[in-house]
């Protein structure tokens, strides 16, 4: 008995939160890709965005804060038949999970990473996140954030990611298309989704983003890394959105002799003869 369509459940998000748009777009993207709920594994860490897997009918692994990437990559390694999608926040992905962010780009496991980037910590009620602008005043950063904002898409490009996109919750049509392309991409795909936080970020509001975002579709060669980096660096009066970079490159599975073309790891039986041979070598 399996559910045929993706359903959403009652949420605990603030009215007007950008997460609603992401959840809805995700449901549309998965449906349009003709996936079934049991084929999809949603993974998250902790945070408001990280509740997304709880609100859509699919398999879900809601782990620890900052630790969405390691279990997501390993689940895909264990069972390549799963479509593995991470939905989690900027703090989870770039702050607590920053190390995993860098190294999973290097792994290039075929998983998709949607980062709900509202440039603020929501669950803990409004502290600076790694993407908060310098000078952003919060309860903790009372004199304004001293630190520079991280540019996640630029970092991802520099680290060698094979799919890097920037999206905005206010452009649902573009978001759905980017999501579909990211999920279909063979390899690690990062989509940094700009979203307002209606409760705790009074600076980067819906209209703040709306005034700045500029879709790049049709005007940008997404195989051009240098052009992608230039677009990634723009985050001021103009914020380019769209698929900034995409490149086909061997995935973790392609490079791994145990995984490549040999079917899901989960289906492999105990290799008795090989093990006995290992024993015999020690006699």
């Amino acid at each position: 008995m399996s559910e045929q369509t993706f359903c959403t459940r009652e949420t605990a998000w603030c009215p007007g939160c950008g997460n609603f748009s992401i959840l809805d777009s995700l449901k549309t993207a998965l449906t349009e890709l003709e996936l079934q709920p049991h084929q999809v594994l949603m993974v998250a860490g902790i945070g408001q965005a990280a509740k997304t897997p709880q609100y859509i009918s699919a398999n879900a692994f809601c782990g620890l804060h900052g630790r969405s990437l390691p279990p997501a990559a390993a689940a895909k390694i264990a069972n390549e038949a799963l479509t593995v999608v991470i939905d989690t926040g900027d703090g989870d992905s770039y702050g607590e999970g920053g190390n995993h962010f860098l190294h999973n780009i290097r792994r290039n496991v075929d998983i998709t990473h949607f980062v709900h980037d509202n440039q603020i910590y929501g669950l803990t009620k409004g502290q600076a996140s790694p993407t908060s602008a310098t000078g952003h005043v919060t309860g903790v950063q009372a004199d304004g954030n001293f630190n520079q904002a991280m540019n996640p898409v630029l970092v991802a490009l520099a680290a060698g990611a094979t799919f890097v996109a920037r999206a905005f919750t206010g452009d649902r049509k573009q978001l759905v298309e980017i999501m579909k392309a990211a999920i279909s991409h063979k390899g690690y795909a990062l989509v940094d989704i700009l979203q307002p936080c209606v409760s705790f970020n009074k600076i980067n509001t819906f209209s703040w983003y709306k005034e700045r975002v500029r879709p790049v579709e049709g005007q940008h060669d997404r195989q051009d890394l240098m052009a992608a980096m230039q677009l990634a660096m723009q985050f001021d009066d103009v914020i380019p959105t769209g698929i900034l970079y995409q490149k086909e490159q061997p995935t973790y599975h392609d490079r791994h002799p145990v995984l490549h073309d040999r079917g899901p790891l989960i289906d492999r039986p105990l290799q008795r003869e090989a093990l006995q041979a290992a024993f015999d070598q020690l006699i």
Partner: peptide
């Protein structure tokens, strides 16, 4: 020979979280 994946993780936090993801799967 024995059909297993051995992954050198970026740190021990990743190591155990990866193992848990594989176990879940």
């Amino acid at each position: 020979n024995c059909d297993l994946v051995v992954e050198q993780a970026e740190d021990e936090i990743a190591a155990i979280n990866m193992a848990l993801g594989a176990s879940f799967a």
